[in-house]
């Protein structure tokens, strides 16, 4: 071996060791800042792999084309009136699709070992989870504007005002955050990445199809109508229809809000607990 640090001469010549000062404690402000840095980390990944934005942009456009031009005539008589009916639905569907990323992203982070790095740093424990949900909410917001722009291109018009439009997007993203909490629990519980992906997609299928998203509720059998009417998806979509095209808003919006608050209150803490124990 070459001259190593083992030799007494080298040991003696080392500079004196300075005992480090203590670190400032973590406050709420720091925790918020850490979550935002973590969210910006997730969003920066879109630069390295823009394909991660396909689910929020191309997918809803493809669904819109398929539903409006394939089923539209059959469901609503003509494609023009179906666009009017369907747009709030596809906006909500987009939010559900993007919510999958919360669970998948967390599972990926645990899989690569990067979470260990963050946990070994003096960083708020909440940062990874909160950052994930924030960045997915941002993606959901981007997705809303993309799909709206496309919808306008094929003939959709907002018949109310900009405030109503913003309220609709706010409600949709709020609903998305609630879905993300559930998705997070799945991502932090299921064993492997493919399982997370499947479950995070599958659990929403009854919500998506058992709703007023694609077709009017009146044609469904009575027992199904009972489910559809309390389905948060229906409530969110109906509220958005009211907000974008005129019609009842207060009833469905209230129901949707209760669902959103309830889901966050239940699944948020479960996700936090799962995050704490997951290795």
């Amino acid at each position: 071996m070459t001259a190593t640090v083992n030799s007494p001469a080298v040991l003696a010549s080392r500079p004196p060791v300075v005992v480090p000062a203590s670190a400032p404690p973590l406050g709420l402000g720091t925790a918020v800042r850490h979550a935002l840095v973590m969210a910006s980390r997730n969003l920066r990944k879109l630069r390295g792999d823009p394909g991660q934005l396909l689910d929020a942009t191309v997918m809803p456009i493809v669904f819109t084309l398929a539903f409006v031009y394939v089923f539209g005539g059959a469901i609503a008589g003509d494609t023009g009136s179906y666009i009017e009916y369907f747009m709030p639905g596809i906006m909500a569907l987009t939010v559900t699709i993007v919510s999958r990323t919360t669970g998948v992203g967390l599972a990926v982070d645990f899989g690569t070992g990067i979470v260990d790095r963050f946990r070994s740093l003096p960083v708020a424990r909440s940062a990874v989870l909160a950052g994930r949900i924030i960045s997915d909410a941002v993606r959901m917001t981007i997705a809303q504007f993309v799909i709206l722009a496309f919808a306008v291109l094929i003939g959709f018009r907002v018949h109310t005002g900009p405030l109503e439009l913003l309220a609709a997007i706010g409600l949709l993203v709020g609903f998305g955050v609630a879905l993300s909490c559930v998705s997070a629990v799945i991502g932090l519980t299921a064993r492997s990445l493919p399982t997370v992906d499947t479950i995070a997609t599958l659990w929403m299928v009854p919500l998506q199809f058992g709703s007023s998203m694609f077709v009017p509720v009146e044609t469904m059998p009575g027992w199904l109508q009972a489910f559809v009417k309390v389905n948060p998806m229906t409530l969110v979509v109906d509220a958005c229809r009211g907000l974008l095209s005129g019609g009842e808003v207060a009833g469905p919006a209230l129901g949707a809000s209760i669902w959103i608050v309830g889901a966050v209150a239940v699944f948020g803490p479960i996700a936090v607990l799962r995050y704490r124990v997951k290795r």
Binding site: A23, T112, S120, L121
Partner: peptide, 17 residues
């Protein structure tokens, strides 16, 4: 955590960054 640094067995870096 403010004092330590850790390099694990598996390189923990963000592949997409």
């Amino acid at each position: 955590r403010a004092l330590i640094g850790l390099t694990g067995q598996f390189a923990a870096v963000d592949k997409d960054l």
